[in-house]
Simulated scan of single mutants.
Amino acid sequence: MADDRQLPRYRVLTGPDDDSFCWRVSEALDLGYELHGAPSLTFNGDRVIVAQALIRDES
């Protein structure tokens, strides 16, 4: 895994609303990211797609 100096301070995770997406967000939280705002959801005609912004405090 990348060390802290290589992690961006801001990132947005996107993907289908499934267990895999939840695990990706959980892993980011374990790396020190915090949720930034509410998730955004849309329907692409096939499934629900979710986006979640995260920030990481470097101090």
Rank of each mutant, 00 (worst) to 15 (best):
P39D: 05
L35C: 05
R11T: 11
L54Y: 03
A2S: 10
R5D: 01
R9S: 14
E27A: 01
E27N: 05
P39V: 01
W23S: 12
L13S: 04
S26N: 04
L7T: 10
D19E: 13
M1Y: 12
S20M: 07
S20K: 12
D46N: 11
R56P: 07
R56A: 05
G45K: 14
A53F: 06
R5W: 02
R24L: 15
H36M: 11
A51Q: 00
E34S: 14
D18A: 04
P39I: 04
H36R: 12
C22I: 06
V48A: 10
C22A: 15
Q6M: 12
V12G: 07
L29M: 06
D19R: 13
Q52S: 04
D46L: 10
P16S: 11
A51R: 01
R56V: 11
R24G: 14
R11G: 09
S59C: 01
E58W: 03
R47L: 13
A28T: 00
R56F: 04
E34V: 12
Y33R: 03
I55C: 08
G37W: 02
D4P: 03
Q6V: 10
L35G: 03
W23M: 15
E58I: 04
R9A: 11
G45S: 01
A28R: 02
C22T: 15
L13K: 05
A53I: 02
E58R: 08
E34P: 08
S20D: 07
V48F: 01
A53S: 06
C22S: 13
E27Q: 01
